[in-house]
Design a protein around this nucleic acid. Structure first.
Length: 784
RNA sequence: GGGCGGUUAGCUCAGCGGCAGAGCACUUCGUUUACACCGAAGGGGUCGCAGGUUCAAAUCCUGCACCGCCCACCA
């Protein structure tokens, strides 16, 4: 043994684990062995009463490489997995990656533009997708290598991808069922349009940025209105005020007013609506329903006309008269100029800051637009799926399967009922608040990379087939299908919706699309030939994996995707299975740099976990991400910290080396000679192990890790070993043997308890000191 | 505007009713059956501020200040 632990061997250790097959719970020994095995591990013939522990890995985006946040996630989850595996539970951890639709597409688009100066439209859909897939594959391979390097004991035989065949079947089945239940609808609604990426984005993908702007007050007939966006005011013909605003009491709802506006005289209508804040500006505003969410809602309430002012490229439409074709940013000062010339500008407030919506993906300014999109209706009532007998599906507490419920209520109840526990607790309130205020989820995206929406549109020209001349009116306009449908009555073709689905639609299915769902006919067949499950609402025969591992035990992820992902998984499994996707949600904090900033490429403050692992070992990297990070709190990471834990690896290694150096051939039988002090030391070690166990069970990993760090360094090394040196070098060989036996046993307890935290060094030590010749004798599967 | 969290040693953070803790940094000493990526000894704190509850408060309650985050339709 060398004086320092050599982390470059970690890849070999990982390979030994992987080759053993024990990452796969079907191949892992049912009960970990206490004694070295004499023969090959027993195969499990029946489920028996073995406890099950299952998790899915939150699939990293195939947009590049893993960062420290991923490393922290892998470390925490691997602790849970290794602990449960050593406890003897049937333990499954499913790996996978996320196609991350918009994020990946954008990344590749940028790259192609940079290298070749071409846009995706220049390449065409097919060629562009080929490029994205190529990129995604390379990215995937890199991510898998990194994940293994961190020691994550995932069952690679079950690896999944949110855009592979099996998951595509799941997505289409889910879409079809939700459409069938009326929970997915297509409609004209106000959406967040990103003129830069030419796609809609969801509410959650918006980043608000403060911007300084001028705030103008204009004369609008007898009123004065304030606005920061005069260039949108061309179509404004409604003037809105609060119904209880005394200043405007003489104006009646619906009353008409003739007035002079940007491009000439118009007739405006008075509208009274509570959404207006009397204290803001003049308490009067005009509305632009096509380009503002609040205005849209007011218009909906009062059934007002809506007119489009700005096109999808961000340019003004003919309604703007002389300004048509101009970009909105160009038009703004010109419009102000014109209104001023007409004497309608009252005053300008230069010190006005407002928040503008930008896309968190492309950074472009969001321009709300009314567009025909696909939505998930979160408020529509439906009857909850009734779990089939013997299917392993459980009812969601507090919801009678025969009662009607909305997705919103379902998401709320699954957590409120206590069936799903969110840790740390503080996130419960945030979750409830979110579900309470949830609006319909826009799921269509105008991008190419992703799950194509399985909806087909009837071409407008109907050429009735013979004998069906009278049926043309019955032709279905939209058919949801995974294959190209044919019209019953005419020869018209169907064309598929060009849009793709929001990436979270597919990741929402992750906990069960990775376990063999959809069941029945669709399972295992290429999706082109597999019809959607006809028995709408039927479950089919559940897969073995599903029965065994669903709902998953724990969902561990960053708090930043509580809404994006966690909530959507609850929604999806609630509707499609009538079940919860997981029992406990544990949310970890973000990893930040030493100054507390987010790690990002532009700041150049990214600490690459792979570099850390090469330099200091994966174990040290893992420990640095665990210790000092309280549940749900952000943590600051610096290389110093990692270095500190590398020293601990070395310390542990040297303890092992010292014990090996003092091997006494006769140690084996000397247990009975333990003194009272020896026994006390053993009891202490075991009690530490118990406390570590408790820390893992309560998701307080930093406590367990710190406890072990302390015990090993300042108790085992500094006190016990120093003390035992006397006995070891004494004349009395038997006493020396006893001392050695004690140290050996204490170290074994220590590395066992430490294994989930630092799998590599502990395995290396186990192989040096404890393993038998038998193949597959690994610390990884020793009894905890 | 609403909500949540933070404020503890020089730095990074645990602790969340019972004698103020860890890691890093710092000071002094040390070529000991492993380890200098080490050991021994040590310095360093009105636990943000002001009240309150309690035998006892960093910990519970109230208010305030500053910092951070999340949510929201102020045109």
């Amino acid at each position: 043994m060398n004086t320092t632990y050599d982390p470059s061997k970690e890849s070999e250790i990982y390979k030994a684990w992987e080759d053993s097959g024990f990452f796969n719970p079907d191949r892992a020994p049912k009960k970990p062995r206490k004694a070295p095995p004499r023969s090959k591990p027993r195969k499990i013939s029946s489920r028996g009463k073995q406890k099950v522990f299952s998790m899915v890995l939150p699939p990293p985006n195939v947009t590049g490489i893993l960062h420290m946040g991923h490393a922290a996630m892998l470390a925490i989850q691997d602790i849970l997995i290794r602990y449960h595996r050593m406890k003897g539970d049937k333990t499954l951890w499913i790996p996978g990656t996320d196609h991350a639709a918009i994020a990946t597409q954008e990344k590749v688009e940028k790259e192609i533009y940079k290298k070749e100066g071409k846009s995706r439209h220049d390449l065409g859909r097919e060629e562009f997708l080929r490029r994205v897939e190529q990129f995604a594959k390379e990215s995937h391979d890199h991510i898998v290598r990194q994940t293994k390097r961190m020691g994550a004991s995932l069952d690679w035989s079950r690896e999944a991808f949110t855009l592979d065949e099996a998951r595509t079947r799941a997505v289409r089945e889910a879409f079809k069922r939700m459409y069938g239940a009326g929970l997915i609808y297509r409609g004209g609604r106000i959406v967040n349009w990103d003129p830069k990426l030419q796609t809609t984005v969801s509410d959650d993908e918006i980043e608000w940025k403060e911007e300084k702007a001028s705030f103008y007050y204009f004369k609008y007939g007898p009123f004065e209105i304030g606005t920061a966006r005069p260039e949108t005011k061309f179509g404004d013909k409604y003037v809105v005020m609060h119904p209880k605003d005394g200043r405007y009491a003489k104006w009646k709802d619906g009353q008409k007013v003739e007035l002079e506006w940007i491009n000439g005289p118009i007739t405006a209508t008075i509208i009274k609506d509570g959404a207006v804040d009397p204290a803001f500006g003049t308490g009067v505003m005009t509305i632009t329903p096509w380009h503002d969410a609040t205005d849209f809602e007011i218009a909906e309430r009062h059934k007002l006309d809506k007119e489009q002012i700005i096109d999808l490229r961000g340019k003004l439409l003919p309604i703007a008269g002389e300004f048509a074709g101009k970009k909105i940013t160009e038009a703004r000062p010109l419009v102000v100029e014109k209104l001023k010339a007409k004497g309608l500008l009252v005053k300008t407030d230069e010190n006005y800051t407002h928040r503008i919506a930008t896309s968190s993906r492309g950074g472009g300014t969001i321009e709300p637009q009314i567009l025909t999109q696909w939505f998930v209706d979160v408020s529509k009532k439906f009857t909850l799926q009734k779990p089939l007998k013997g299917s392993g599906l459980k009812e969601i507490k507090g919801i009678n399967p025969r009662n009607e419920i909305s997705l919103k209520e379902l998401m709320y109840m699954a957590v409120r009922s206590g069936q799903i526990t969110i840790l740390p607790k503080k996130f419960n309130k945030i979750y409830f608040y979110w579900t309470d205020n949830l609006r319909d989820w826009c799921i269509s995206r105008q991008i190419w990379y992703g799950h194509r929406i399985p909806a087909w549109y009837h071409e407008s020209k109907c050429i009735p087939r013979q004998g069906h001349e009278a049926d043309v009116a019955k032709c279905k306009e939209v058919i949801v299908s995974d294959v190209k449908p044919k019209c019953e009555f005419c020869n018209a073709e169907f064309t598929q919706d060009p849009d793709t689905l929001d990436t979270w639609f597919s990741s929402g299915l992750w906990t069960f699309s990775t376990l063999g769902w959809p069941f029945g006919k669709a399972q295992g067949k290429p999706f082109d030939s597999a019809p959607f499950d006809k028995a709408q609402g039927g479950h089919g025969k559940p897969s073995k994996d599903f029965l065994m591992y669903h709902p998953t035990s724990v969902l561990e992820t960053g708090y930043d995707i509580l809404f994006f992902w966690v909530a959507r998984m609850i929604l999806m499994s609630g509707f499609l299975l009538g079940d919860i996707p997981f029992k406990t949600v544990y949310l970890h904090g973000m990893v930040r740099d030493a100054q507390g900033r987010k790690m990002s490429k532009s700041l150049g403050n990214i600490i690459d976990p792979l570099v850390m692992a090469e330099k200091y070992g994966a174990d040290a990297t893992r420990l640095s991400l665990i210790i000092g990070a309280a549940p749900g709190n952000d943590m600051k990471l610096s290389e110093d910290r990692v270095r500190g834990y590398r020293n601990f690896s070395t310390k542990l290694w040297n303890i092992a080396r010292f014990i090996r150096m003092n091997e006494k051939p006769e140690f084996a039988s000397l247990r009975s000679r333990y003194t009272a002090e020896d026994k006390k030391a053993l009891v202490k070690a075991l009690s530490i192990q118990k406390r570590v166990e408790r820390s893992i069970n309560t998701f307080r990993f930093h406590e367990g890790a710190e406890l072990l760090y302390h015990y090993v360094w300042h108790e085992l090394a500094d006190k016990i070993i120093e003390r035992e040196k006397k006995r070891l070098q004494g004349e009395h060989m038997a006493h020396a043997g006893t001392a050695h036996a004690l140290l050996r046993e204490l170290l074994r307890i220590s590395i066992t308890a430490l294994h989930p935290f630092m799998p590599f060094v502990t395995e290396a030590i186990y192989q040096e000191l404890y393993a038998s010749e038998a193949k597959g004798d690994l610390l990884m599967i020793q009894n905890w």
